[in-house]
């Protein structure tokens, strides 16, 4: 990415909704670490929001339990377009250690479309920030596509 391009995009901050679909909590505390003073992603205006309706990005952790499948779909549908889905952690991406079970419907891309995968068990906060940076670009691309297709701003 060219620096000028990055600077054009950066002011458009991401609002993120986080959904735990059966994760062990390891990724979730790393997400908390990402937003708190050491890594402080909030300085870029990125923050966790309380409702999917306010979000640009849906952050999903966990291998999706049967109990959560329908709920995850509903949350996804509530996020307004353009939206980007980030999966944080190996188990959401592939199942990882939870590769076979009677109570799982995952991985996440079996339920909803996924745009960015952040690997690691759990990924380090730096990796989550990198995933968010990729999401910014994707979101911008999706926004432009929507504009071209004639959607109002």
């Amino acid at each position: 990415m060219k620096l000028t391009r990055a600077l054009e995009i950066l002011p458009k901050s991401l609002w993120v909704f986080h959904c735990n679909s059966g994760s062990c909590n390891g990724c979730d505390i790393e997400i908390v670490a990402t937003i708190t003073p050491r890594y402080d992603i909030e300085r870029f205006g990125m923050k966790l929001v309380g409702s999917p309706r306010h979000a640009d990005v849906l952050l999903v952790t966990g291998p999706v339990t049967k109990y959560m499948t329908e709920r995850l779909r509903r949350i996804y549908e509530q996020v307004p377009d353009p939206k980007v889905v980030i999966v944080v952690g190996n188990c959401g991406a592939s199942g990882d250690v939870f590769y076979k079970s009677y109570s799982l419907d995952g991985p996440v891309d079996n339920i909803i479309p996924v745009d960015v995968y952040v690997h690691g068990c759990p990924p380090r906060p730096e990796a989550i920030i990198e995933g968010a940076a990729k999401a910014v670009l994707l979101l911008e691309k999706k926004r432009e596509e929507l504009l071209k297709a004639g959607a109002s701003r």
């Binding site: 199942g95 590769y99 076979k100 009677y102 799982l104 419907d105």
Partner: peptide, 11 residues
């Protein structure tokens, strides 16, 4: 117990 069709392999 769960039959093979009740069990999902994720990867």
């Amino acid at each position: 117990g769960p039959a093979p069709e009740n069990i999902r392999e994720l990867s």
